[in-house]
């Protein structure tokens, strides 16, 4: 396959970026999208140019590193998949492919197609866990957990923290990401004890990081490579309102 690529190039966070056009030839339809970029990069190096920087690691759709906005969609043309798993057979020979980084105030561009997603880490640090220390815990089978609940928790826990939800949202809201963690833990008896505290702290940090509000457009769910559900947002809203109304007064 031959393709024209329009790629966002930006040296570093301080530079102004812009699109540059490249051509790649004889790409196998069985190559992955990132392998196609590898091929382009090899050519660029040979020409003495800087290769295109993009985050990636596992190339199996699980680490959440890859984060490309391709032809106007996070992770490209296919659904329920990360861009590292998309293969070139999904593109038309001779077509033009536009590749951009995630665009969001909370995710500043670092270099070319790489963005800084550390805001997600700080939201988790604010409370996205069960505050248990190593050791001194009961036997794993001491608390039976309803299988459906456990499965639902797993559905939410499948989030890979890639940020596609933020990238696709017109408000750049992080609600899907935050609610997935809130839900996972709120669904499990172990997590319920500090559920109220958790949701308040995480939401506070989310607001602080500059993510936008959720207006229920549902774009995040549609683009999530792991099919994290909007129902998580509803659950988080309930948890949040419950926590606010609840008697538990706490300092954040």
């Amino acid at each position: 396959m031959d393709l024209t690529l329009k790629i966002w190039r930006q040296k570093d966070s301080k530079s102004k970026g812009g699109f540059k056009t490249y051509h790649v030839k004889d790409i196998s339809p069985d190559a992955s999208f990132l392998e196609m970029l590898d091929i382009l990069n090899e050519e660029l190096i040979h020409k003495g140019e800087m290769p295109v920087n993009f985050d990636n690691d596992c190339r199996e759709g699980i680490c959440g590193a890859c984060s490309l906005y391709v032809n106007g969609r996070p992770h490209g043309p296919d659904s329920a998949i990360t861009i590292c798993q998309v293969h070139m057979r999904k593109f038309k020979d001779g077509s033009t492919v536009t590749i951009e980084p995630w665009r969001s105030r909370a995710f500043p561009v670092i270099s070319d197609l790489m963005v800084d997603r550390s805001a997600f880490d700080r939201i988790i640090q604010a409370g996205g866990y069960i505050s248990v220390s190593t050791g001194g815990v009961p036997d794993a089978n001491e608390i039976p957990i309803n299988k459906m609940k456990a499965d639902e928790a797993m559905d939410a826990a499948a989030c890979i923290g890639c940020g596609a939800c933020v990238a696709t949202c017109k408000n750049a809201s992080a609600m899907l990401f935050v609610s997935a963690k809130v839900s996972q833990l709120a669904l499990l008896p172990q997590g319920q004890i500090e559920a109220k505290r958790r949701v308040q702290k995480m939401v506070k940090q989310m607001d602080y990081e500059g993510f936008g509000n959720c207006t229920n457009t549902g774009a995040c769910e549609a683009e999530c490579p792991k099919e994290i559900k909007l129902t998580n947002i509803a659950r988080m809203n309930r948890e949040f309102i419950g926590a606010k109304l609840g008697a538990q007064k706490m300092k954040l």
Binding site: P144, I145, K147
Partner: peptide
């Protein structure tokens, strides 16, 4: 101890209909 620890952390291991791991 690892399994106990992970369950306490909220790791959603697969379960049977009985609710056990």
């Amino acid at each position: 101890n690892i399994i106990d620890q992970c369950v306490a952390q909220g790791v959603p291991f697969a379960r049977e209909y009985s609710g056990y791991l």
